[in-house]
């Protein structure tokens, strides 16, 4: 051992002087420049073609972009998105827990539900709910053999909006169930055991221990589902729900500005999905607490730091032993 200890890297010995930093001429990549230029030229051409298309009335696009009918459509689109996702998430969690239940009946019912609603198109499902009144003029609920009974006309009960919400929400639940199930399965078995050993029951350990950790796996795809849902609500146009796409179509029908109104709708869909994408980033960050020692800075924080330390030396490596709990600044 002594011969190692007396070597040049012996503990406690002084580190040698730091040699000069490497300065080398970087490898050139001419083809990167060529391919980059080609792609840019192609993309630029597409934009130019549309921007200067003689029959495309851009003035009408800008005019209708903030039209009252369009803005009302946006409100309906957002309502549909929120309600359908709420139904999807709540029912999805229930279905996922049922699927993992020790009771075979629960598990099978959940499996069947997912099989059915994933296996048929949403468009057909919305269509189904919208036209239910043609076969079932009344819908009721009651306990047989008792006077406890209630029924209502299907037309009153299921409006076009309700039909679309049901179609979108019930369909979404099937997808959410699989996402939630994947999240639950991803939580280590040891977590369940630790909670059980403390005497927690199934409900408590699900709600307090497993689901919060499953969130980290559940949130990113749920964000994707929400973004996807926002666009899928345009299918509600089959039930004539006056959402964004229906409205833009209706306007196009009397102004004959078909592509212009499609562009208007697209701009709004893009704007809304962009906002959702940013929201998703922050929600993911919140649920990552405890998973990392310190949360990474947000793009905004990084930008600010870059502004102030642009020419400054790199910040010192933070001492992890005294790092603060994440998310509490």
């Amino acid at each position: 051992m002594t011969d190692i200890a007396s070597g040049p890297a012996a503990p406690g010995s002084q580190a040698g002087p730091r040699p000069e930093a490497i300065k080398a001429i970087p490898v050139r990549h001419p083809w990167r420049w060529v391919s980059g230029a080609l792609v840019l030229a192609f993309a630029g051409d597409i934009v130019y073609t549309f921007a200067t298309a003689p029959d495309l009335r851009w003035d009408q696009v800008w005019k209708w972009l903030s039209g009252r009918l369009i803005l009302e459509g946006i409100v309906i689109t957002l309502e549909l998105t929120v309600l359908a996702m709420l139904i999807g998430i709540v029912l999805g969690i229930v279905l996922a827990v049922m699927r993992l239940s020790p009771s075979p009946v629960m598990s099978w019912v959940s499996w069947l539900y997912i099989w059915f609603f994933r296996g048929t198109p949403v468009l057909v499902q919305i269509f189904f709910w919208f036209n239910l009144n043609t076969v079932l003029p009344h819908i009721g609920i009651g306990i047989p053999g008792t006077p406890l009974h209630w029924q209502e006309s299907t037309n009153l009960l299921i409006s076009a909006f309700t039909a679309a919400t049901l179609g979108l929400g019930l369909n979404e639940a099937a997808y959410m169930a699989e996402i939630v199930r994947a999240g639950i399965i991803s939580v280590e078995q040891g977590q369940t055991e630790a909670a059980q050993a403390l005497g927690m029951n199934r409900l408590q350990l699900m709600r307090r221990i497993v689901l919060p950790q499953a969130m980290r796996v559940i949130i990113p795809p749920t964000g994707n589902e929400t973004i996807s849902m926002l666009k899928t609500t345009s299918l509600a146009s089959i039930a004539a729900v006056p959402e964004l796409f229906t409205r833009s179509e209706q306007i196009a029908n009397f102004t004959f500005l078909v592509i212009e109104l499609a562009i208007v709708a697209s701009i709004w869909y893009l704007a809304m999905t962009t906002v959702l994408t940013i929201g998703q980033y922050y929600v993911e960050r919140y649920f990552a607490r405890g998973a990392q020692r310190e949360l990474p800075p947000t793009p905004f924080q990084r930008f600010r730091r870059m502004l102030f330390t642009f020419h400054a030396p790199p910040p010192p490596v933070p001492d992890v032993s005294v790092s603060f709990p994440p998310g509490r600044r």
Binding site: Q191, A194, Q196, A197, M200, N201, I209, Q213, G290, A291
Partner: peptide, 26 residues
């Protein structure tokens, strides 16, 4: 029944090889 199993477990402490602390809690 589960309720009584939980009750009895709550009177016995267990420490695991891999700690199994709840990572989302302080």
């Amino acid at each position: 029944p589960d309720r009584e199993v939980c009750q009895k477990r709550s009177e016995i402490g267990m420490v695991f090889q891999h700690f199994n602390l709840f990572p989302h809690m302080t």
